[in-house]
Amino acid sequence: MGIFSRLTDIVNSNINSILDRAEDPEKIIRMVIQEMEDTLVEVRSSAAKSIADQKDVERRLKKLDKAQADWEKKAELAISKGRDDLAKGALIEKAKVADMAAHLQEELSQLAEALTRNEEDVVKLEAKLREARAKKATIQARHKTASAQVRVKKNLYDGRIQDAFDRFDKVDARLDRIEAEAEAMDLGKTQTLAEEIAGLEADDDIEKELEALKAKASSGANDNKAAPKKKAASK
């Protein structure tokens, strides 16, 4: 069953109100557009028929106008021949043709009015159709945006991601406990006097060893520089 039942329903419709009441606006707007397009085809078909009928009536009127002129000529000929009886008969036929022409002229006027209404209906329908198509584009854009947001939020609040973060928290908590245990083992410990002196002695030994290595490296460098000179003297 269509959204609209008559042409006036479409022309007078409030598309926003229809969509506000709809459970599935995207589906409803497609149905609205389809019915508008179908109705537009019907109105244009009706207009085409009116145009064809109008042309047919105009052709018939031309024939009747010619027939009236012919009967009038025949009446004039009969009068010229002294046959008033024939002239009277010709005028009676002309009157009949004129009466038929009057009816056709009235029909032509009605067809012209119908065609004008059809043209107005087409203009109104096309305006409503443009409105509906614009609404469809807006709804589709909003639906696309909303769907993308839903996908993003589903990913953000996915249970698997939360489980991973929970596991990270557990690892952090375990590391905190291990570090706390290490710090707790050092609590209350201070170096004795002997340990401090031994540390100083160890520092002195390291300094002496460092100086010895520097002296050795410096001596080796000097020997390398002097060796070429002695070789040149022997020659």
Score class of each variant (00 low, 15 high):
Asp65Thr: 11
Ala87Leu: 03
Ile161Leu: 14
Glu131Asn: 01
Ala180Gly: 13
Ala75Phe: 01
Ile18Val: 10
Gly89Ala: 09
Ala22Gln: 02
Gly82Lys: 05
Ala215Glu: 02
Arg60Ser: 15
Asp70Ala: 12
Gln34Glu: 06
Glu107Tyr: 10
Glu179Thr: 06
Gly2His: 03
Ala141Gly: 04
Arg177Ala: 13
Ile197Ser: 14
Ser147Ala: 14
Leu86Cys: 11
Tyr157Lys: 09
Lys231Leu: 15
Met31Cys: 08
Leu64Phe: 00
Glu23Tyr: 04
Ser50His: 03
Arg151Pro: 12
Val32Met: 02
Ala184Cys: 05
Gly82Thr: 03
Gly159Glu: 07
Thr190Phe: 07
Arg30His: 04
Gln140Thr: 09
Ser234Asn: 13
Arg177Gly: 11
Gln105Ala: 15
Asp65His: 08
Ile206Asp: 14
Ala132Glu: 00
Asn155Gln: 10
Asp38Leu: 14
Lys144Met: 10
Glu72Thr: 01
Ser45Trp: 02
Val43Pro: 00
Ala90His: 00
Gly89Val: 07
Leu200Pro: 13
Asn14Thr: 05
Asp20Pro: 04
Leu156Ile: 13
Lys49Ser: 09
Leu193Arg: 10
Glu126Ile: 08
Asp169Asn: 15
Lys55Met: 04
Ser17Asn: 09
Asn222Ala: 14
Glu207Val: 06
Ser80His: 06
Ala95Phe: 00
Val171Ser: 14
Val11Thr: 07
Phe168Met: 13
Lys216Gly: 15
Ser17Gly: 12
Leu7His: 10
Glu183Met: 13
Ala112Val: 07
Ala127Ser: 12
Glu37Met: 03
Asn224Ser: 07
Leu64Gln: 00
Phe165Val: 14
Glu131Gly: 00
Tyr157Ser: 14
Asn155Trp: 09
Asp20Gln: 08
Ile33Val: 02
Ile3Ala: 09
Glu209Met: 05
Ser109Lys: 11
Lys94Trp: 01
Ile15Cys: 00
Glu113Leu: 14
Lys96His: 04
Lys96Arg: 07
Asp53Trp: 02
Asp166Met: 12
Ala98Ile: 00
Lys66Ile: 11
Gln191Ile: 08
Ala78Trp: 03
Gln140Phe: 06
Ala227Gly: 08
Leu86His: 05
Asp53Tyr: 01
Met100Cys: 04
Asp65Ile: 07
Ala52Lys: 03
Val152Leu: 06
Phe4Pro: 00
Ala127Tyr: 06
Ala112Thr: 10
Gln34Tyr: 04
Thr8Glu: 15
Thr192Lys: 02
Ala132Thr: 00
Ala202Val: 08
Arg6Val: 14
Ser17Lys: 07
Pro228Met: 03
Glu195Arg: 05
Arg44Asn: 05
Gln68Lys: 14
Ala67Pro: 15
Phe168Glu: 12
Ile197Val: 15
Ala87Asp: 01
Thr8Asn: 15
His143Gln: 12
Asp169Ala: 15
Ser13Lys: 02
Lys73Pro: 02
Gln162Ser: 12
Arg133Ser: 02
Glu196Val: 13
Asn16Arg: 02
Lys88Phe: 02
